[in-house]
Write a protein that binds this DNA or RNA. Structure first.
Length: 670
DNA sequence: GCAAGGTC
């Protein structure tokens, strides 16, 4: 019995909102755990993003037996990843004569829609289909989109599928290659990918820069001046590269100085801009890992406390009633802050540089009570609320005092600042306002010098990436998306390519990058993503055939596999793995101490690499993941060890010290 | 047990 209409959106939440905009008396029915919104003769269903996944057929599953080259031209199949959803779609497909694709208005959205469409057309080949495109879920936008449906863009969907295919082929071939060459198979496999490998390369190369950094000495001169009771410090305008010159200048500085110039100004400091995912994660990473922060944000979104956390947008759309949200917030924990915002005559929000129409910037959507949320949820909720209120707050006002003082021809600069109106800083408590005291001065005024000093300093190497700054850099280079960047970083941790925050590469992380740079540099370059983007655009425009683009990748990989130096690849990787296991020097024979496993029960322990010549061993706890830190024990040349369990980290310290203490304790007991 | 991209 045909005759019904099916509308398909990308996720449940949009299905619910769109059905309530288009229809009255919407009924929610659950089928196999999937929400189906019904009204008149219409069904509205939300997908869960992609519902199928590209993969190799089963006969390619055995990594050790399948020749790598055979992956290049294997038939790639689509596997259903959301079984219940597909079953519901199939059952409804038989009842309908029209389906409208209303997934997100972007390339992935086009493919997600086509995936569902293919399943439906398989059941019901005669179904009519169309596509609506909207940039915001507001009654006017939705009604407008549905009043003039357009056609499905199969070329665009195709281009997204090619992206998947290329990622899979490159990823699978190189992942298997380095896993097989290194002997790291099973759950310890090593991975390679278009996004993860360039990201890892950033971390590895930053570490190399730090290691190769040659610090340069330089000298700075400081002098403290007094006016009345107030003493303030000034810095010589020059940074000296030469010690003698610095000393000469320092000797010239007398016990008085004349104010050469003085300027006093008020400076307004604008509030921060609205949160998109990148900026949100940058701030949230001060409290927890980016992966955790995203999970917490997701759960706050699902319970309705904050808006959708995956967005590129930093400009509030006009359709959001900002004042209403602030008024709502006066009902809760942030009453004082919300009232402060409302005390302004006019509400004005800051704007960020990125304006897109996907979703609004992250903002609170409901008032939460502290005891309804977990600790982590509250931290994130508070951050989102404070950021939101800050974007609507007045400027912070500083008084700036700048100028120069001359002492016997040596010029000192001062740059004082004092906060006179807190403005948004009262609400957004995550960045400290640092004041630099300088009194009011007049040109020509003579001041006493209370003290002076010549400081020898060194140029510093660049900082390591923190997870927050790495996400920012990935965005800048076009690596990953707002929804995947945090997962990519998490992947680098779980492969043990990196550890700590700021991130440091492990030996195997460095080895993988060095091996790839030699054998398959393309996959380590951010350019691969931009090249792929260009190709996808050309495919979507119908200017390039998809077969050609895939063929290009296949030929490239074929070449790599043919010209490979397997022995050196294997050596590089195994060397890295070996070095990661080194804990320190054996106190008996000074060869390397490494983490090993007992043959029979595979219990782990620290043993000398000189075994069987040397049989020195130390015990290790059997539970938890072992982290060898970079801190050496002062007594023994052994690195300190940390253990991560489900409950968190605990410090074992130096395993030798730990063992000796344990022995001492046991003696007393006996 | 492979990737990256949506989504939970």
């Amino acid at each position: 019995m045909a005759g019904k209409w099916l509308i398909i959106t990308e996720k449940d939440n949009t299905a619910r909102r769109i059905s309530s905009i288009l229809f009255k008396n919407v009924k929610k029915v659950r089928k196999k755990g999937i929400n189906v919104y019904q009204a008149d003769n219409t069904y509205v269903i939300g997908l869960k993003g992609h519902i199928v996944q590209l993969d190799f057929p089963e006969e390619y599953n055995n990594w050790s037996k399948v020749p790598l080259k055979s992956l290049l031209r294997a038939d790639i199949i689509k596997k259903v990843t959301e079984k219940n959803l597909v079953e519901v779609l199939k059952s409804i497909a038989k009842e309908i004569d029209r389906v409208t694709i209303a997934t997100d208005y972007d390339r992935e959205g086009e493919l997600i829609g086509v995936e569902a469409l293919e399943i439906i057309r398989n059941e019901n080949p005669n179904v009519r289909f169309d596509r609506v495109r909207y940039s915001a879920i507001t009654p006017s936008d939705i009604k407008k989109a549905f009043s003039s449906p357009t056609e499905v863009d199969f070329n665009l969907a195709k281009s997204a599928e090619i992206r998947q295919k290329i990622d899979l082929i490159w990823g699978a071939v190189l992942t298997r290659l380095i896993s097989l060459s290194s002997g790291r198979l099973g759950k310890d496999f090593l991975s390679v990918g278009r996004v993860q490998s360039p990201t890892l390369r950033l971390i590895v190369e930053r570490e190399e820069e730090i290691k190769n950094f040659k610090p340069k000495k330089y000298w700075e001169i400081f002098a403290s001046f007094r006016k009345g009771e107030e003493v303030f410090q000034c810095k010589h305008e020059k940074r000296f590269e030469d010690k003698e010159q610095a000393e000469k200048a320092f000797a010239k500085v007398g016990d008085k100085g004349v104010v050469v110039s003085f300027e006093k100004k008020e400076r307004a400091e604008k509030p921060p801009t609205p949160f998109n995912t990148t900026e949100f994660l940058r701030e949230a990473s001060k409290f927890m890992s980016v992966n955790k922060a995203m999970m917490v944000a997701e759960s706050l979104y699902m319970s309705g406390y904050i808006s959708y956390p995956r967005t590129d947008n930093t400009v509030y759309p006009k359709t959001i009633n900002l004042r209403a949200i602030v008024e709502k917030l006066t009902q809760g924990e942030f009453k004082k802050e919300a009232e402060f915002v409302l005390s302004q005559e006019k509400l004005r929000a800051t704007r960020g540089k990125k304006e897109s129409k996907d979703h609004p910037p992250i903002h609170p959507t409901a008032v939460a009570k502290k005891d309804e949320l977990s600790k982590d949820e509250w931290v994130i909720y508070e951050l989102v609320v404070r950021r939101f209120l800050a974007t609507l707050s007045p400027d912070a006002i500083w008084v700036v005092r700048r100028g120069k003082i001359d002492s016997s021809g040596e010029i000192f600069r001062f740059n004082g600042r004092k906060l006179i109106e807190e403005g948004w800083r009262k609400i957004y408590i995550y960045s400290k306002a640092e004041e630099v005291p300088v009194p009011d001065l007049q040109e020509g005024e003579v001041l006493d010098i209370v003290s002076k000093k010549l400081e020898e300093k060194e140029t510093k190497p660049p900082n390591r990436y923190s997870s927050g700054s790495l996400i920012k850099e990935m965005e800048k280079l076009g690596l990953g998306t707002k929804s995947t960047r945090h997962e990519i970083i998490n992947k680098l941790y779980s492969r043990k390519y990196v550890y700590g925050n700021p991130l440091r590469p492990s030996e195997i992380g460095m080895a993988v990058i060095n091996a790839l740079k030699k054998e398959a540099e393309t996959i380590t370059q951010p350019d691969m993503t931009s090249k792929l983007e260009e190709d996808m655009y050309a495919i979507a425009e119908g200017k390039l055939s998809d077969e050609y683009v895939v063929e290009e990748s296949i030929r490239f990989l074929d070449e790599i596999l043919s010209n490979l130096d397997r022995e050196s690849l294997s050596k590089t990787l195994r060397d890295g793995i070996r070095k990661d296991k080194i804990v320190g020097k054996c106190p008996k024979c000074s060869r390397d101490l490494v983490i090993r496993k007992k043959k029979g029960d595979s219990r782990r322990f620290i043993g000398c690499s000189g075994y069987p010549d040397c049989n020195f061993t130390l015990p290790l706890p059997q539970k938890g993941t072992i982290y060898i830190t970079s801190k050496l024990c002062e007594k023994h040349e052994i690195k300190r060890i940390k253990i991560r369990t489900k409950k968190g980290y605990w410090d074992l310290g130096c395993p030798y010290c730990n063992y000796l203490e344990w022995q001492e304790k046991n003696k007393k007991v006996n």
